[in-house]
């Protein structure tokens, strides 16, 4: 996993704007990737990422100099995503009335569709905590210990969430693979 040099967050903590800019430029793509995969809505994802970086900036006084920056950043980002998820349905109803939702098509209708779309559909169907755990482990490549620390979930419960997510992904996507053969 690619982490920013440890000196950069420390410079940002001391108030160097340039260091904060470096952090934003380094992590923005990863943060947006995670938020998009969690929220399946570009607008919400961008909002979550912007909120997260502002909170990171505000919270630098509380960032311990001996801590690693990645898990700290992802803890803040994951919290923002959870908040947006909790109001996600109402928000989409207000703005997209009459629109076809992004993941409207049932998986049965997706046979032969692009693999990435298939994956997104199944990912979106996972319970949020399983999706989050799976993404942090298998896409963002954080260790179980880091994920446990940033989510506050016990290791055993965390492993179970990842396992269940993988089981569902295997079950649904194996069907697609077999159908495509």
């Amino acid at each position: 996993m690619n982490e920013i040099d440890a000196s950069v967050p420390l410079r940002a903590k001391r108030g160097e704007e340039q260091a904060f800019i470096e952090i934003v430029e380094f992590y923005y793509p990863r943060c947006l990737r995670f938020a998009r995969n969690m929220l399946s809505n570009d607008q919400d994802a961008e909002e979550a990422v912007q909120d997260a970086f502002v909170r990171v900036h505000d919270s630098f006084p509380r960032f311990r100099e001996d801590a690693r920056f990645d898990p700290w950043l992802f803890r803040i980002l994951a919290n923002r995503c959870r908040t947006l998820l909790s109001r996600g349905k109402r928000h989409r109803s207000l703005i997209e009335y009459g629109d076809v939702p992004i993941t409207a098509a049932a998986p049965e209708e997706e046979y032969g569709a692009d693999w990435a779309e298939e994956v997104q559909v199944v990912l979106d169907s996972l319970p949020a905590e399983q999706r989050e755990a799976f993404l942090l482990r298998h896409v963002e490549d954080l260790s179980y210990e880091d994920i446990a620390a940033l989510t506050g979930v016990r290791l055993s419960a965390l492993r179970m969430r990842v396992k269940r997510a993988c089981d569902t992904l295997r079950a649904r996507l194996s069907e697609v693979e077999q159908h495509d053969r």
Binding site: S93, L94, Y97
Partner: peptide, 10 residues
């Protein structure tokens, strides 16, 4: 009409 009715419905 589309968006206004949508908000009204909520």
């Amino acid at each position: 009409e589309r968006h206004g009715r949508g908000i009204l419905s909520l």
